[in-house]
Simulated scan of single mutants.
Amino acid sequence: MTLSVHLQHHFPGLNLDMAFEAPQGVTALFGRSGSGKTTLAHAIAGLFHPDQARITLSGRLLTDTKAHLNLPPHQRRLGLVFQDGRLFPHLTVAQNLTYGQRFAQGSAPRPGLDAIARLLDITPLLARRPAGLSGGERQRVAIGRALLSGPQMLILDEPLSALDQARKHDILPYLERLRDESHLPMLYISHALDEVARLANTLILVDQGQIRAAGPLETLLADPDLAPALGLRQAGAVVTARITAHHADGLTEALLPGAGPILLPRLAAPIGASVRLRIAAQDVILSRDRPEGLSALNILPTTVTRLRRGDGPGGMVQLQLGESLILCRLTARSAAALTLEPGMPCFAILKSLSVSA
């Protein structure tokens, strides 16, 4: 199932000119606030009428301004989740959930209320009203309501931005479960790269109303030329590993394809499971020779593939780590001292890892 978007619109001080295709899986629209992400999402959902647009979902025409076609939101079969949940305060959780069912179309079998409540762990909340729920609980109910509308695609517009860090960590596993178990295509809008790295398969980088880059998440996050647009402090690659052992000292061992084993804090996932690892560029140290006597447990052989000099004192180095690419952020002085150049072997010392099982 593919979402195809071609859109142009003029705002005072900002011209939107975007074209992309979102394949099956989770596609993330990522960019700074004010870059046009939410306007784009609203145009896809039929909540905003752009100057020019052609939008299709699996070949079904949603918007075509040249043909004067613009389906109303309730006919688009898109499940919408906003950052504030937008639940009906006078209805119980169960009534909010079933409200979405009235918009379901077609006779194809779909999960019912009980199945969605179990998926999102909200069965104990069904008799309560929104005022008595936490922010994370309200967002799970909003997601459930969208799912029960029988959508062909789910659009989540900054669904975690109104939550504190603890509530974000609570709800992210449910979004991962939704991704893995429902197989429903999702368009995920966010300016938080850690959320995008955990959830998305495809990344679309939006910058000042334009599409700066679009493609597989792992490829774009490892591109040193995109690091400034993604945010130097957030820059980092995502790699996939397979769990091979759980050790008695509280560590989990995983295998990076082509690179060898890596040690992680203990994970609950079973042996054989795949895990997605986020390696921040600022958490990678480089050494020409294999260092000895360090407390770091993960010292891996890599090869320099690309270097990008920054405008200031820093830069980015792209490294081949087995079958994957990662980034290292370092100063120009360090790069010169190491005499780094493409093709040079070196060792990457990983200070920390963010894990999404």
Rank of each mutant, 00 (worst) to 15 (best):
L256Y: 03
T56L: 05
Q318P: 10
F48Y: 12
G258C: 11
N298Q: 08
L338C: 07
G106V: 02
H42N: 15
S149N: 12
V93F: 03
A241G: 01
R138G: 10
L119A: 11
T2C: 09
S4V: 13
G236I: 10
T303E: 14
L163D: 12
I271Y: 00
F11Y: 15
E253P: 00
E218W: 00
R129N: 00
L338R: 08
H183R: 15
I285E: 07
Q234E: 15
L203R: 09
A162W: 12
F88G: 07
G293Y: 02
A296I: 15
P342F: 03
M1H: 10
L57K: 00
L220V: 09
L205A: 04
V304Y: 02
P130K: 04
V141I: 09
L230N: 03
R212W: 04
H90M: 10
H90D: 11
L61W: 01
A235Q: 05
R177K: 10
G46V: 06
P228F: 07
S107E: 14
R329P: 06
A268C: 06
H247C: 07
A115V: 11
S182E: 13
L217W: 10
G315L: 08
E195K: 05
Y174C: 04
H183M: 03
H247M: 07
L267T: 15
D121Y: 02
D157C: 04
P12G: 01
R60Q: 13
L256G: 05
F103E: 00
N15K: 13
Q234P: 03
E158G: 03
L193T: 10
A245D: 14
T56N: 03
L263Y: 12
R333Y: 08
I262V: 15
D17F: 00
P159L: 06
I204F: 05
E176Q: 15
E158A: 02
R288T: 13
R129G: 09
E158Q: 03
N70K: 02
L184D: 00
G36L: 06
F11V: 08
A235R: 00
L220G: 07
A213T: 06
R86P: 00
Q282L: 12
D311W: 10
Q75N: 07
A41M: 14
Q105Y: 05
G13W: 03
Q210D: 01
T219E: 15
H90Y: 11
L62H: 10
V275H: 02
A222P: 03
L119N: 08
T219G: 07
H247I: 04
C346K: 06
I299Q: 05
R233T: 13
L47M: 09
D84Q: 14
R308T: 15
L307A: 09
R278A: 02
G258A: 10
T56H: 12
S107W: 09
R128D: 06
D170F: 14
S35A: 15
I143S: 03
A131H: 14
L267E: 14
L163W: 11
L203F: 12
S295C: 05
P89T: 12
S287Y: 07
L147E: 02
F88Q: 13
K351E: 08
G132D: 14
L178R: 01
T65L: 10
G100C: 04
R76E: 01
D223Y: 11
L133A: 00
E253S: 14
P216A: 14
L16D: 04
V275S: 01
A241S: 01
P50I: 02
H183V: 02
A227Q: 08
T38W: 08
G46Y: 03
G315R: 08
L178G: 01
A332M: 08
Q208E: 11
F20D: 13
V26R: 01
L203K: 11
P257K: 13
